[in-house]
Design a binder for these strands. Structure first.
Length: 351
DNA sequence: TAAACGTGGTT
DNA sequence: TAACCAAGTTT
């Protein structure tokens, strides 16, 4: 047996023995449901397995098939997604479900070429679905595989410059393998559980003897990456406006991009100048500043919001906004930042 | 090519 | 605590 076939055999044997149970993963020897594979792959983009678990279960219970999901309203999909982050994924998920029903009769295509044309499916996800759900020979290169390959070949060139090389090497390792689905999952699982970013468990690795970085003693130093730039801070105010029934005001967020299509408590713009936008939501209301501010960290900036509260009398006209109770929130796509504000305001009342 | 795009856990 | 990280995609 040649070297590559031997490595494949080692990884597959390791995966057979150590594969984790996940809600979207078919039992050993069973055929996976492409709808489950697709849904989980979208949710898992830049998101941990632990965070995805409950969301995946909620989605398949609410929408057991791609047809049901396509027939749902976008607001309901966003509400169910709330808290998972990267909400473009949810908007594209809904769009993609519609396309699969309309263009493919509700059956997911099985080739990378067809999959990558669908909304929210890029090079990684197209390969992952083709391989995992259909056992086709596609090579899915995610962060785990990048790390494993960087170490296995001791690639010193930093990411993302080394990406093309990593892709080519990963493809070489995966070539001519009848168990594409298991190999793809095993490749990633190895990175997730053994070849970890810090303190890799090289003693437990099926590829230890062939790993160049391990031989050189530099496994933990790879892959090399440029340092992240420091994030700017943005400032603003968020408003808790409560009526006599203890309900509070929420509104649909305007504009594109961040939190597009989601709900929020009324807020000023968020700017780089702490002194700008020192303006309250409604001149007719008397606002008091809450004792604590909200801090929230995004990928590309940190946010610091003052919380200002007011009581709305019977004459107050909410306009497009609406009063809701805390118990209603599961029906609204309120992001974690805003849920944090709600929690702080409710807590301050009982304190 | 680089920036936008969330969140929660770990070190 | 600040930095880093997690099954990336879109513009």
């Amino acid at each position: 047996m040649n070297k590559k076939a031997h490595l494949q055999k080692q990884l597959l044997a390791w995966f057979d023995a150590h594969r984790r149970v996940m809600p979207w993963r078919a039992a050993k020897g069973k055929t996976p449901d492409p709808y489950h594979v697709w849904l989980s792959e979208i949710m898992l983009q830049q998101t941990t397995v632990a965070a995805v678990g409950p969301y995946f279960l909620k989605f398949v219970k609410k929408w057991p098939t791609v047809e049901k999901l396509a027939a749902a309203g976008l607001d309901d999909v966003l509400a169910a997604w709330a808290g998972l982050g990267y909400y473009a994924r949810a908007r594209n998920l809904h769009k993609c479900a519609g396309a699969v029903v309309k263009e493919f009769g509700g059956k997911f295509p099985d080739t990378e070429e067809d999959l990558i044309k669908l909304p929210g499916i890029g090079p990684y996800t197209a390969a992952a679905i083709s391989s995992i759900a259909f056992n086709r020979p596609a090579v899915a290169v995610d962060g785990n595989v990048e790390r494993v390959v960087s170490r296995f070949f001791a690639i010193e060139e930093p990411l993302p410059q080394s990406k093309d090389n990593i892709r080519a090497q990963a493809a070489r390792l995966a070539k001519d393998n009848p168990r594409s689905s298991d190999f793809t999952q095993g490749f990633m699982e190895l990175g997730a559980t053994v070849c970890t970013p810090k303190k890799p468990k090289c003693a437990s690795c099926p590829w230890q003897k062939s790993c160049a970085a391990h031989r050189l003693g530099i496994a933990e130093d790879l892959p090399r990456k440029a340092r992240k730039k420091q994030k700017p801070v943005r400032y603003g105010r968020v408003f808790w406006i409560e009526n006599k029934s203890g309900e509070f005001l929420i509104e649909k967020r305007a504009g594109k991009g961040l939190y597009e299509g989601l709900y929020q408590l009324p807020t000023t713009d968020w700017t780089n100048d702490a002194k700008a936008r020192r303006k309250n939501h409604d001149k007719r209301l008397r606002f008091k500043r809450l004792g604590a501010d909200v801090r929230h960290s995004f990928t590309h900036f940190d946010l610091l919001l003052e919380i200002w509260t007011a009581r709305a009398g019977a004459a107050f006209k909410p306009g497009k906004a609406r009063f809701v109770s805390a118990g209603d929130l599961e029906n609204y796509a309120l992001p974690s930042l805003m849920r944090k504000v709600v929690k702080m305001c409710l807590h301050s009342k009982t304190a």
